[in-house]
């Protein structure tokens, strides 16, 4: 931890070697975050690089209230979401048909953890429409609540829930297809 703190200090002093070290330390994970939101690897790399630029330009604002990785992940997430919106002109539409909380239990899938690899999971997520993908990522992987998702994306809580339910239904179908095929 001390090493990271020292690196952050040096980055605040705009030392190039420290920026490079920090980049190489966290870039693989940050690229993973960006890739979850962006289907194209090139776009994900672009978002990751833009994210790091933001990190280096704003690192003086980091006060250590949260873990550095969390702070940085948040920046990457926002950068990736902005890029998705920019590239795809995403619209979040509330669909009342899916807007109920009772659907959770219906989404059970009997699956062995080893059945699906990371690549397969990514491939399945990539098939989701962009709006669903963002909400699903934020909820299921980042662990954010619908209220926070709504605030972040500028949509209502209901829209977030409806998008998530649609995403789950879609994912369930896709996973079942793969399992049946295998």
């Amino acid at each position: 931890m001390k090493e990271i703190d020292e690196l952050i200090l040096q980055c605040k002093a705009e030392k190039s070697w420290a920026q490079e070290k920090l980049f190489k330390l966290y870039a693989p994970q940050m690229l993973g975050i960006c890739r979850r939101y962006l289907s194209s690897m090139d776009d994900a790399r672009d978002a990751m690089q833009d994210g790091f630029v933001k990190v280096f330009l704003n690192i003086h604002k980091y006060e250590g209230r949260s873990a550095f990785k969390t702070w940085m992940s948040r920046i990457m997430m926002n950068t990736a979401i902005d890029m998705v919106k920019k590239i795809n002109k995403v619209q979040f539409v509330r669909d009342d048909y899916f807007f109920n909380d009772t659907n959770d239990m219906e989404d059970e899938i009997e699956i062995d953890d080893q059945d699906l690899s990371q690549e397969q999971l990514l491939a399945i997520i990539d098939k989701l429409p962009h709006g669903y993908k963002i909400v699903f990522n934020l909820y299921a992987i980042e662990g954010m609540g619908h209220k926070d998702i709504g605030k972040l994306l500028g949509i209502s809580e209901g829209t977030s829930k409806s998008q998530l339910n649609r995403a789950r239904t879609y994912l369930k179908t896709e996973i079942n297809k793969i399992l049946q095929a295998s």
Binding site: Q118, L122, I175
Partner: peptide, 22 residues
């Protein structure tokens, strides 16, 4: 939470980077 458990693998997703990235 079905979706959370299946896709939790992606939480720790790491992808290789190259020197060009830096």
């Amino acid at each position: 939470e079905p979706s959370k458990s299946i896709f939790s693998k992606l939480d720790e997703l790491e992808l290789p980077i190259t020197e060009v990235d830096w």
